[in-house]
Design a binder for these strands. Sequence first.
DNA 1: GGCATCATGTAACATGTTACATGATTTT
DNA 2: AAAATCATGTAACATGTTACATGATGCC
Lengths: 208, 208
Amino acid sequence: MLDRNMLSNTAYVILGILQKGPTSGYDIKSKVDMSARFFFTASYGQIYPELKRLEKSGLIAGTERLNGRRARTEYAITSTGREALLEWLRTPSAGIDVRDEGLLKFFFGGKLDRDDLLARIEALRAERVADLERIREISRCVPDEADELQLAVLDYGFGLYDYVIDWCDRMLTRFGSREESEFPVDRWNPDDVLTLLQTVGGGDTPPT
Amino acid sequence: MLDRNMLSNTAYVILGILQKGPTSGYDIKSKVDMSARFFFTASYGQIYPELKRLEKSGLIAGTERLNGRRARTEYAITSTGREALLEWLRTPSAGIDVRDEGLLKFFFGGKLDRDDLLARIEALRAERVADLERIREISRCVPDEADELQLAVLDYGFGLYDYVIDWCDRMLTRFGSREESEFPVDRWNPDDVLTLLQTVGGGDTPPT
DNA sequence: GGCATCATGTAACATGTTACATGATTTT
DNA sequence: AAAATCATGTAACATGTTACATGATGCC
């Protein structure tokens, strides 16, 4: 299955960032952290080796710039790199891959009594709110060039957390209060998990 | 940072499944796939070695059962295992970790013209609808014991896809049609990414 | 002077997937 | 009799994180 020169997602992310202008490995990391953190992360341990590999393959080219005595290697995407990126964009993607330890703990809380379970959900909610707060803080200073797609994925990310926190709230009313009907569930009926799919799946997609 | 006997999430998931009753490695895999797939996955390459480790640590105990000549090792959780699981449940969790190649491609589609970008969003939406359809098919036969928490996380997962597909639709109207105002965005205003956070973050959490 | 940040990197480790091997049983 | 599924496992690989090392520059 190894296509002799398959690139990793990290590689494409680097190409994607570089497409917007030349940058250093250090800056790539912070740009990814600030803009793509809702659906991708990368550490220096991945970025720096990948930059070397991409340069060796001729998809990017590095230039030494020194401000004073501080060395800084700025990488620029080559035309081959641009082609590789464009080709990747046209390719079908893998599914969403979510890892959520908090939800895992909720899921296995079956032997807990009600109060303990509620405390767990409250904790989960609080964690998510805190996560969101942290991300919000980071994102505040982002829009350097404020491109449309960057705003769109921010929108995606914040909305995602909005959904997750709402779900926590729904679970709190569902497992907590006895006067459940006081808090109407407006979006869809959580007790009927399977029927809602008709609404979602049978919508407005053109027949393939 | 290595606490000499730190367990991986895979280990806890195994304990969690086993808490509901003894099972084989094979069954653990299918149970995880059917119930936790929205926020966790595990392959045989992880499960079988982990079962050995957990047995060596005394958190689970295996028994050979044979139906005919087909060997099957059924593992049961021990009281030590139950304790470990309970302790883990009380511990704070890591944040959500999402990997989304499709969104990554959308994000880097800045150099594409409108029509190409729209085609990409349509493709993304179609992929998600297909994913959901596949998961729905799998989940149909799930509720063996139909526990509440299992339904709750199914609810979570389907709602998540619901959100993602809705987001795609919003992006289609946002980047596509000129008569944008004809399709009112009911949930929250996507053009004002930052102000909505007040509504989410400043809600009904008790002051910590 | 001391701290934060800029800047680059690596080695060890942890985690996770894929492909393969093996063979029994059940279903079509 | 073929195909699907049950059942267990491993080796190679791919991916990703953490901790560390190094040193310059800018700011209080």
